[in-house]
Each structure stands twice: as structure tokens, then as C-alpha cells.
Nucleic acid binder design. Structure first.
Lengths: 209, 209
DNA sequence: TCCCCTCCTGTACCGGCGGTACAGTTTTCA
DNA sequence: TGAAAACTGTACCGCCGGTACAGGAGGGGA
């Protein structure tokens, strides 16, 4: 049981890196087995077909993603009491984490799946959809706490604002990868932070001169 | 010359729709020739290989994209003198255009290429990079005009703010497609508009009661 | 009218890949 | 030590990207 899990994980590791660079259609099973040093039969022992691999890959990615957000915003919550300051700190920590990635963000599997949708079954599409909805709920929850204390300077829909976090992350990844500027993603998160700050923080000071 | 261009365009039309739904790796040449009613030899008469098709596809997409932005923000410029109000109107018009798309936004080729990078040659990657840089310059130009009149409420880097427009668009497309909620993209653009408004517009009124 | 160029069609072929089938072997752990 | 788990090896299928090349329809200019 133990050994099997290890091999499975190794396949998933190799597959994830490949898929994020070349998409699902561009990643061949043959190259995966070559890199993991397993045989074709061995691969199909673990995954019935490519769709099954995609399913496992996506689920693992989403779980890991959730864990990272839990940790970052959980830490921010522990350090600061105020919901707004805590959220702003969370975005700061997230931005730091992203700018510490040595080769930039490798890409988001949710986006990859989104741009390959037609070749996946309904289950994967639903999983992907639910992942995005989970982001909406997560950030929405925090934003609602903020709104209970700070009235927004402009009228905004909470869900749409929560989606903005996801948008900037997904879009920032695309920009960062395309430009080959690893730091762009981190900067975009800080830009979003500025937006949130401005939206909720009471006018602090008068413009000088 | 006329007939050839027409066939070429038909291939590109079919290919674009397919690629946006299934990615490059997931789109087979055989299905393209089946749908356009051309033979395999006919296809390879127009495009040397898949890479050549991708190149043509991407260039056409980028040109069309630029034309749309030229038109929208050009119209906004004609209607309103003030650079800030003009930009805000442009975002409004863009949001309306996006929410009028019957089946939602079909997807962005730049993002598709970004998530398939490793299987393309340097030329395509450079083209893609330049497209994103062109967005940065485009929105940067408008934002600089705004900043010459309106001091931003918070210190922001112009290029990063310009990138925010691209981020929200790219991210909004991913969200919209994944959620199968066509309107999410338009809402995200309006959210961005709120941000820009808040950043540059002087405090308009006191919060009531 | 003839010829040439553009724009294709038809046919045959290659190797890689996803996937299947299944028999046999090694490794692990209770 | 024995059964289950975790593989290997081999053979095969059909689709796909790509190559090669011969030939043909149709229009436009000399």
C-alpha cells in the first residue's frame, strides 16, 4: 500500500509539471512514464486513462491550493484581530509567498482545465467549477466580516469582489508566465490589496498641498 | 488569390473556436479539415504545420483584439474629453460589449498559448509576450494621461495598474468560462472600473448617516 | 487560344501516441 | 509463508501529425 502511493505521487508530480507547461493535450503518457521510470502497464495500473489522471491531478491541486490559503489567511487571522487588517496582511503574505517562488508561479491547473474543457467529462468540469465557487465562498466570508465593521466607500457586491481576488490571481499568473516576469503576479496581488484598502479604510489623511 | 484567402480564413475560424475549447494539443488537424470540408493536402497547402497555424491564429487574434480596444476606447475618447471619465466610459462600454456576447467570452488565445508554451517555438512566445506588453502600453498611456490631471489617492505604479486591466480580463475570462456564468467577466470589468474611479476621483460626498 | 499560376484533391506512407489485453513476475506486509 | 499489491513485457489496434508527390480544375494575362 505504501509503495503504491509513492509511485502514484511521483507520476502526479511529473504530470502536474508537464501539464502546466504544455496543457493536457500536449502532455503524452509516454513522456510521463519515461520521466518517472515506470512502464506503460505500470501507469495504467494506477490510472485507468488520461481522464482519470486529470481527475486525480485536479483534486490534488485543489486540495493543496486550499491548504495554502488556509495556512496564509489563518496565520494572518492569528496575528491580527481586525478583519480588514487581517485580510490585508493575508494578501501581503500571499504576495510574498508568490514572489519567493524561484521560477515564478508554475501555472494554475484550474485555468488549464478551463481551456481544455471540451475533452473532459462533466465530473471534472464540475470539480473545477466547485473549486472556483470555493474561492468565492472563502474570500466572500472574509469580506463579509470586513463589511460588518467597515462600510465600503463604493457600493460593491460581495461575491463579485471575492471573485476579483480569483480573477487577479488567475490573470496575474497568465501575465507573469507570458511576460516571463515572475514578479508581476506578486505585484498584481499587492495592487488588489491597494484596492481593498482603499475601498474599506476610512479616509486617512487629506491630500497634501 | 481571393479564393485562397477565403479558405484560409475559414480554416482559421474553425481552428480558433476549437483551440479555445480544447487547447492546441487537444485540437486535431483531422477534425479541422473535416469541419471546413477541405482535404488534408489542402490544409497543408495553407499551413506548413500546426505551429504555422498557431502563428497565424495568434496574430489574427491579437490584431482583432487591438482593433476592438482601439474602437471602444477611441469612441470613449470622442464622447468625453476628460481622460479619467473617458477611461471609465471605455471600461463601461467594454463591460457592455462583453455582457452582450451570447455564449459568454469564448476564451483568450494569449492565455491558451501561455498554457501551451513549451510546445511552441520562440517566435510564438515572443509574439504572445509582445501582445501583453502592448496591452501594458495601451492602458499605461491612458492612465498616464489621467495621472497628469488626477493625483492618485494611493501611490501606484502605472505599469502595474495597466497590467491590472489585463489581469482582470484574463482572470475574468477563466472564471466566467469555468463557472459557466457569462456575466461574471462583465462584472469583473465593472469592479475594476470601481477601483479606477476610487483611485483617481476626488472624494465626492460624505458617507451618509 | 494557350499556358501558367493558384488552389486545391488523392493516395500512400511513416512513426508516435492513447489505449487494450493479458500473462507473468517481484515486492510488501500481515 | 502466502496472498495481495505493485508492477513488467509483449503484442496489438486505430487515430493523428506530418511527408511526399502526382495530378487536376479554374481563372487571368500574353
Amino acid at each position: 500500500m505504501r509503495k503504491g502511493e509513492e509511485t502514484r505521487t511521483r507520476i502526479l508530480d511529473v504530470a502536474e509539471a508537464a501539464v502546466l507547461q504544455k496543457g493536457f493535450g500536449g502532455t503524452s503518457i509516454e513522456e510521463l512514464i519515461a520521466e518517472t521510470g515506470i512502464t506503460k502497464s505500470g501507469f495504467f495500473y494506477h490510472f485507468r486513462d488520461k481522464n482519470e489522471l486529470a481527475k486525480a491531478l485536479l483534486n490534488r491541486y485543489i486540495e493543496n491550493d486550499e491548504r495554502i490559503y488556509d495556512e496564509i489567511f489563518g496565520r494572518a487571522r492569528d496575528l491580527v484581530d481586525d478583519p480588514l487588517q487581517s485580510f490585508l496582511l493575508g494578501l501581503k503574505l500571499l504576495s510574498e509567498l508568490l514572489s519567493d517562488l524561484p521560477n515564478g508561479h508554475p501555472g494554475c491547473l484550474v485555468a488549464t482545465v478551463c481551456y481544455y474543457e471540451r475533452l473532459f467529462d462533466r465530473e471534472i468540469q464540475e470539480t473545477n467549477r466547485n473549486a472556483v465557487l470555493a474561492w468565492r465562498r472563502r474570500f466572500g466570508r472574509m469580506l463579509r466580516e470586513i463589511m460588518a465593521v467597515y462600510p465600503p466607500r463604493e457600493p460593491v457586491d460581495v461575491d463579485q469582489l471575492a471573485d476579483m481576488v480569483s480573477s487577479v490571481l488567475e490573470g496575474g499568473i497568465v501575465l507573469s508566465k507570458t511576460l516571463k516576469e515572475p514578479n508581476t503576479l506578486a505585484e498584481q496581488v499587492l495592487m488588489l490589496r491597494t484596492f481593498v484598502k482603499m475601498l474599506f479604510l476610512p479616509v486617512a489623511e487629506m491630500p497634501r498641498a
